[in-house]
Design a protein around this nucleic acid. Structure first.
Lengths: 190, 190
DNA sequence: TTAGATATGGACCATAAAGTCCATAACTCC
DNA sequence: GGAGTTATGGACTTTATGGTCCATATCTAA
C-alpha cells in the first residue's frame, strides 16, 4: 500500500502528484488517507523514510561479506548503480535523489532524512574499504573515510547524469576510473 | 526578465511554480507571458536552455588558460563547486540538476538539453586534463576522457549531497580525494 | 495626426487541487 | 447478536491553477 504511494511520488514527483493520484494508486478513499497519514506531506515523509531505510539496508546487504572480496563487492555494487542509472527502464532514477532535489531546500525534514541516508551509505562504503585495506587490496596509508565519501559523490553523480540519459558505457567507465585511482598496496618486488 | 522567471523555477521547482508566481516575479501580465512564450512549459524550456548555455560558458571561462596551471584550475573549479554546493545560501542548488531530476524522465526535451550540457561540461574538463597532461602534470598514459567523465560524476554528486546539507569540509574532501587518485607523471629520480 | 498593427493587463473560465465532513460499513468485545 | 467504536469512501467546499479572450494601450510609419 505504501509501495503504491511511493511509486506515484517516484514517477511524478511530489508537487505533481495529486491526492487523487494517490487515491487511485492506493485504492483508498480520501478519508482513509487523511485519517491514516494526516496530509500529503506527512504521507510523503512516511514513504520517503521507508525508501531511505530500504536503500541503506539493501546496500549494506550487497556489501557485506568477508574481507577478501570487499573491494570487488564495492566495485560491482557501483557498476550496478551505473547500469541501473542508465537503463531506460529505470528512467525515474532514485526517489532519494528526486525527493532531495525537489524538497530539501524548503523542507528541513526531508533534508535531514536525506543527509542521514547519504551518511549511512557513505559509512557502508567506508566499512567495505576498511575491509579491503585490512585484506591488503588497499594501501595501508589509504583513508577509507575520504575514499568512501568520494565514491559516494561518484555514485550520486551517476544517478544525476543517468537521469539525463547518459549511456551505460560512460557511466560504468566513471566507476572504473574512480576505482583505478584508489591507492592500491604497493606491489612487492622480489 | 527571464532571470526573474528562472529564479522562480529555481527556487520552487517546475510543478510548484504557478503562472501567478511567474506573473508576480516578472511583473508581466498573463497575456504577455502567453503571447511571448506560449505556455508554462515552453517558458521553462527557454529558461532552462539559457541556464545551460550560461553554465557551460562560465565553466569554460573558468577553465581556460595556459597548460601550466590547467590541473590546478580544474581543481580550484571543483573545490569552488564543493564550497558553493555546501553554502547554506546556495541551498537551492543548481537548476540543471533540479530541472533534470524533476522533468527529464517525462520530458525528452529537458533530458536532451541536460545531456548535451553534461557532455559539454565533461568536454571542458577533458580539455583541461589534456592540457595538464601536455604540461606533464598528468601521466602520459592518463586518459583525459575517462578522467573527465569521472570528475563530472564527482561534481554532480557534490551537487546532490550538498543539497541535503552535507558539510563543506566533506564536499571539499571529495574533490581532493578524487584528485589524489589522478595518475600523476612518475617522479624523476636523479 | 492617424490608420493599422502589435503588445499588454487582467477579467474570466473550466478544471483540478487539497482538505473537510458525514453517512455508512466493518470490526470488537461482551 | 448487538452496542460501541473505529475505519472507509466519496460527496462537497473552497481555493488555486493553467489557459483564453478581449478591451485598451502602445508602437510604427506615412
Amino acid at each position: 500500500m505504501l509501495r503504491a504511494a511511493r511509486d506515484q511520488f517516484w514517477n511524478k514527483g511530489y508537487a505533481a502528484t495529486s491526492m487523487d493520484d494517490l487515491m487511485q494508486a492506493t485504492g483508498l478513499g480520501k478519508g482513509s488517507l487523511y485519517g491514516a497519514f494526516g496530509d500529503k506531506h506527512q504521507l510523503f515523509l512516511k514513504v520517503f523514510d521507508a525508501y531511505c531505510v530500504g536503500s541503506v539496508e539493501s546496500v549494506k546487504k550487497a556489501l557485506e561479506g568477508p574481507d577478501a572480496g570487499a573491494l570487488e563487492r564495492l566495485r560491482q555494487h557501483l557498476l550496478g548503480t551505473a547500469t541501473g542509472s542508465a537503463a531506460p527502464a529505470n528512467r525515474r532514477g532514485c526517489l532519494l535523489s528526486r525527493g532531495t532535489s525537489e524538497l530539501a531546500a524548503q523542507d528541513a525534514q526531508v533534508a535531514d532524512r536525506a543527509l542521514e541516508t547519504f551518511r549511512a551509505l557513505e559509512d557502508a562504503f567506508v566499512r567495505c574499504l576498511e575491509q579491503a585495506r585490512a585484506h591488503g587490496d588497499l594501501a595501508p596509508h589509504a583513508d577509507p573515510r575520504k575514499l568512501g565519501a568520494m565514491l559516494l559523490a561518484v555514485q550520486r553523480g551517476l544517478e544525476a547524469v543517468g537521469k539525463a540519459g547518459m549511456d551505460e558505457a560512460t557511466l560504468r567507465g566513471m566507476v572504473e576510473t574512480a576505482f583505478e585511482g584508489l591507492p592500491v598496496a604497493a606491489k612487492r618486488r622480489r
